[in-house]
Computed example of a mutant assay.
Amino acid sequence: MSKRVCPIWIGYLLLNPIRKLYQNPEKILSPYVSEGMTVLDMGCAMGYFSIPLARLVGTDGKVICADIQEKMLKSLEKRAAKAGLSDRIETRQKLNLN
Rank of each mutant, 00 (worst) to 15 (best):
V33D: 04
M46W: 03
E35R: 11
I10L: 14
L53M: 12
K82G: 05
L76A: 04
R19T: 12
T59V: 13
E35T: 14
M72N: 14
R19N: 06
V57L: 02
R55L: 11
M72A: 14
Y12D: 07
I28V: 14
Y22D: 13
L97Y: 07
C65Y: 00
L13I: 11
P17F: 13
R79P: 09
L73S: 08
R19W: 04
F49L: 06
V33Y: 02
V39K: 02
G36P: 07
F49H: 05
S75F: 04
L97F: 10
T91S: 00
E77Q: 15
E26C: 07
K71A: 11
E90S: 15
Y32N: 13
T59R: 08
S86A: 15
L29W: 02
C44F: 01
I18M: 15
N98Y: 11
K3Y: 14
G61F: 00
C65L: 02
I64F: 01
V57N: 01
S2M: 08
G84I: 06
L14H: 10
P25T: 03
D67Q: 03
I68E: 06
R88F: 00
S75Q: 14
P31V: 05
I18H: 13
Y48N: 05
G58M: 08
A83G: 06
N98H: 12
I51C: 03
K82L: 07
P31G: 12
